[in-house]
């Protein structure tokens, strides 16, 4: 729901780093987004097309690396995807589990010329 603000931030970060690197053109943005970040890729792409007009990021490609959510059982160390509406460990049925992946939300790198 907040893809507009997110897209603007991605562009700000990318342009700032491209400038620091003395780049003439940004060709790709490499994003790492965890499952819990609740961002719709297509909406970000849509805003990206609009926002990049007139910048050195125009025409660049947005690459989304999606990190699936992961829970890890603190009893038996088994890791699993929290797909069901029940957070217990599928291996040992323990209810002591923690979220270990899925929060990622960053610009990892940009490709420039």
């Amino acid at each position: 729901m907040h893809e507009l603000a997110v897209t603007q931030s991605i562009l700000d970060i990318s342009l700032r780093h491209a400038k620091e690197a003395g780049a003439k053109q940004i060709t790709a943005i490499n994003l790492v987004i965890g499952e819990f970040a609740s961002i719709v890729d297509d909406s970000v792409r849509f805003y990206w097309e609009l926002f990049t007009v007139g910048t050195i990021a125009h025409g660049s490609q947005l690459n989304f690396e999606r990190i699936p959510g992961e829970m890890t059982c603190t009893s038996c160390k088994f890791s699993f995807h929290p797909a069901s509406a029940d957070f217990s460990c599928p291996n040992c049925k323990s209810e002591f589990v923690q979220i270990t992946k899925g929060d990622e939300f960053r610009v990892d790198s940009i490709d420039v010329e």
Partner: peptide, 16 residues
């Protein structure tokens, strides 16, 4: 020539 610039910056860094 294309080069990769590492960034690793949280997207909502400015807000934070």
């Amino acid at each position: 020539m294309t080069i990769r610039v590492p960034i690793v910056e949280n997207i909502l860094n400015a807000n934070d």
